[in-house]
Design a protein around this nucleic acid. Structure first.
Length: 791
DNA sequence: GGGGGAAGGACCA
DNA sequence: TTCCTGGTCCTTCCCCC
């Protein structure tokens, strides 16, 4: 209990000290600061803000976790403890046997990198406290600023309160990238497989370099420092390490104890030279010397038998210093004993949890390992054990395959729907570009939202096939966003951050091209069939419904198919029909149509589409309550004891029920996808079960594509014009049409599509598209799909 | 009841 | 006036066997 009090907030009402917001002075150049005074300023600047309130909430959650942990601890028996102790001991001896001290790993870290680059380029900043970033957030600070408690990841406005004379320089990534590239050239001479962690930090395994270096003559280890009258320095390497760089100003620019400040020898020509030795320390000193000569910036380094220790060592003599931990077990154990847990990759939450158990240093960690094995997950306590023994990775491996890719943006409060959807599209566009650069496609699309209260939510949807284009991403992201908007409706969703992520990347097998839009499809068809038949573009476009491109359909329209069993015939993952194939895949029902005749195929698609349209016609509300579900399979069995259903001519099955649940059990059925019902009336549970429940409306309607062929259908009742939405937006030209007469609107879309098809088919006709290039009018009116559904 | 996948949240660098 | 990105782990929920 004492420990909880010590590590928790002093009260739950938000008064008092909020430890998670306190200064983290675990950084070089921040020793011996007046923490209390600094924390007081931080708290006073933050108190009452939404950010602070959210931090308070998170702090309380952590405190609850700690309370649960302490409760659990209180119930641990002696027997359990001794059993855990035996387990820990066995594991320890196993790990000890595998301890590898043979490698020489170096962690190099540029000193206050961004700040140092800015200071180099603007020497006036040299003696001033400065930081790089903005009033909202700082990326780094120089050592003068650190004396005031100003550090990276601190908002600029708080930093200004800590240090009113602080100069904040805007961030310039291009510049840092260029300098980083220069530094990396030096790294590569010592380990061509070095592992960059960020622009200013890298791990190197110099074991092989040292092996070679032992045989090097002195000339290869001699570096000359030239200075001319203008203060320009030139560095020359003798031997294999080539380098000739002009410098503006002589190092060291920022820190004392430069690696080049050791006594230099005079060479025959009267220039100053420095000879470096063959041991690890000398090799690293040489590397730092060369970095400094090349960039006028200093680096610090740590040398140790593994990555974890090297990282700690690089911090030991920062700035502009290095530290070597000898490669013997006792030295490692001695070194690790007194290290605070926060220094070795344990974050603030885990630090606090360990603190509640009285564990603050690595030696405590080792002593309490049995207890930790009982209170933490296996992964966690194994990690703790490695740390307490001073173990870490001994081979530098570049990260394996990427697991996800994302983009996100923070902005001022945003509540307008149009803005939100427009931003969502922008993010999808940016992400699509990034995905394209790495030729990646992913199945899971995640939308991340942070509201003005700093509450973060992520919402994900996994598709049966991998996607990558803007339209594909947006189709999913916008549905996820819409659901969140509807959830808080009629209140607006007040956002401060939005992000889109793609993960679950496709394996090589899945990276086949997506099925093209009908337009692209027809284009391909034209090429394929050119050997046997000719057709005019006119033939390809008998009606708007037929030729609506895939991009006009929603995400759920596209994700209605199983990637495995039916991939070749009925999936958006399916490849283009192979040359010579005699069937085409319908983009609506995803069945294979045994024809190459476009007229026949178009008729089929028309039928499918009008089926979809008519299937919705019974619906008297907007599509808010409506979910459409397509089942691409055979053997559907409807398992329900309540409700009535009607079937349409084109395989549509309408289901109406006032009961809470419908279960669709199927035989070998593919995953079902449905258009998410915004108010949560309809949800999908696993591949074969659709659950329908309605709290807001007892008459939920579900529309399914049934497996059978065309069936007799009841004539749908035309919807009253009063229910029609406002002006309609053309899905092709994106322009809002000044009509709500569907016939007129359809005629317009037909016209647009005709022009689009002609354009796609390679400019077979001269079409003036200038009138169709208006910027997307986001959400001015219902999209074409909505029109199809409601009308 | 256990295995396993998906989703969501949290932590960490 | 409190970042961005990406990886990992943990928990919960649910389906399936």
């Amino acid at each position: 209990i004492e420990n909880i009090k010590k590590w928790g907030t002093s009260s739950s009402s938000g008064e008092g000290f909020l430890s998670r917001m306190a200064l983290n002075d675990n950084k070089a150049g921040m020793e011996g600061l007046n923490r209390d005074k600094i924390n007081k300023i931080i708290m006073e600047s933050s108190k009452g803000s939404r950010f602070y309130e959210n931090e308070l909430k998170k702090e309380q959650q952590v405190n609850q976790r700690i309370e649960r942990m302490m409760l659990q601890k209180a119930h641990i028996t002696e027997q359990q403890l001794s059993k855990a102790q035996a387990q820990v001991e066995k594991m320890t001896s196993d790990l000890e046997r595998g301890r590898d001290l043979s490698r020489v790993i170096v962690h190099v870290d540029m000193d206050a990198f961004y700040a140092a680059v800015e200071t180099r380029d603007c020497p006036d900043l040299m003696d001033k406290p400065m930081a790089v970033g903005s009033m909202s957030m700082l990326s780094t600070s120089n050592y003068h600023a650190r004396k005031f408690g100003v550090r990276a990841a601190m908002p600029g406005f708080i930093a200004k309160k800590l240090c009113p004379n602080l100069v904040i320089v805007p961030i310039n990534f291009d510049k840092y990238r260029a300098v980083s590239a220069e530094v990396r050239e030096v790294f590569a001479d010592y380990d061509p497989h070095f592992l960059p962690m960020s622009l200013d930090e890298a791990y190197l395994d110099i074991s092989d370099h040292l092996e070679q270096r032992r045989g090097w003559p002195e000339a290869l280890r001699t570096h000359r420092l030239h200075t001319n009258n203008t203060g320009t320095a030139r560095v020359e390497d003798h031997g294999g390490l080539q380098e000739t760089v002009e410098l503006e100003g002589l190092s060291p620019v920022l820190f004392e104890n430069s690696p080049s400040s050791s006594p230099c020898l005079q060479d025959a020509a009267g220039g100053e030279v420095e000879v470096f030795g063959t041991c690890a320390e000398e090799a690293v000193r040489e590397m730092r010397f060369r970095i400094e000569q090349k960039t006028s910036l200093t680096a610090s380094a740590g040398i140790a038998p593994n990555m974890m220790l090297a990282k700690v060592c690089s911090d030991k003599n920062k700035p502009n210093g290095q530290y070597r931990l000898p490669s013997n077990r006792q030295a490692v154990i001695d070194f690790i004993q007194d290290l605070p847990v926060r220094k070795v990759g344990i974050g603030k939450v885990t630090e606090k949890m360990l603190g509640a158990l009285g564990i603050t240093s690595c030696s405590h960690l080792g002593q309490e390992m049995a207890l930790l094995a009982l209170l933490f997950s296996e992964t966690s306590w194994h990690h703790f054990l490695h740390i307490s023994m001073g173990l870490g990775s001994t081979h530098i491996e570049r990260d394996g395959e990427r697991k996800s890719m994302s983009t996100e943006r923070t902005f001022g409060e945003m509540g307008a729907l149009e803005e939100q959807f427009s931003l969502c599209r922008e993010l999808c566009q940016d992400l699509a570009q990034d995905l394209q650069k790495e030729a990646l496609k992913g199945k899971t699309v995640t939308l991340k939202l942070k509201n003005v209260n700093f509450e973060v939510k992520t919402r994900a949807w996994t598709l049966p096939c991998a996607v990558a284009t803007t339209e594909e991403l947006f189709a999913v992201a916008k549905d996820l966003l819409k659901t969140e908007i509807d959830n808080v409706s009629p209140q607006p969703l007040r956002l401060r951050l939005m992000g889109v992520r793609v993960s679950n990347f496709a394996s090589a097998d899945d990276k086949k091209p997506l099925q093209k839009s009908i337009v692209g499809f027809l284009h391909k068809k034209q090429t394929d069939s050119s050997r046997t038949q000719t057709h005019t573009p006119k033939n390809t476009n008998t009606s708007a419904e037929t030729d609506i491109s895939m991009s006009a359909l929603t995400a759920s329209d596209k994700m209605t198919h199983e990637p495995s069993a039916h991939a070749s015939t009925s999936s958006c993952c399916s490849t283009e029909p192979e040359s010579g194939t005699d069937s085409l895949t319908c983009p609506v029902c995803f069945r294979e149509v045994n024809t190459t005749e476009l007229t026949v195929f178009n008729r089929h698609v028309d039928q499918c589409l009008s089926g979809v349209t008519m299937g919705q016609n019974n619906h008297t509300d907007t599509d808010e309550l409506l979910s459409r579900c397509m089942l691409d399979s055979v053997g559907l069995q409807l398992d329900s004891s309540a409700g009535d259903h009607t079937e349409s001519t084109t395989g549509l099955l309408l289901y109406e029920t006032s009961t809470a649940n419908i279960s669709l059990s199927t035989v070998g059925l593919n995953p079902v996808c449905l258009n998410t019902c915004p108010n949560g009336d309809v949800s999908i549970h696993r591949a074969n079960t659709l659950k329908v429940s309605s709290q807001s409306d007892p008459r939920v309607r579900v529309c399914l594509l049934s497996p059978g062929g065309p069936r007799p259908m009841t004539t749908p009742k035309p919807e009253s014009r009063d229910h029609r939405g406002p002006a309609l937006t053309c899905p092709v030209c994106q322009e809002t049409q000044d009509t709500n007469d569907l016939t007129l609107f359809n005629r317009h879309v037909d016209l647009c599509l005709n022009q689009e098809v002609l354009h796609e088919l390679g400019g077979l006709a001269s079409v003036d598209r200038t009138t169709h290039t208006a910027p997307p009018a986001a959400h001015k009116g219902p999209c074409f799909r909505d029109v199809l559904f409601t009308e």
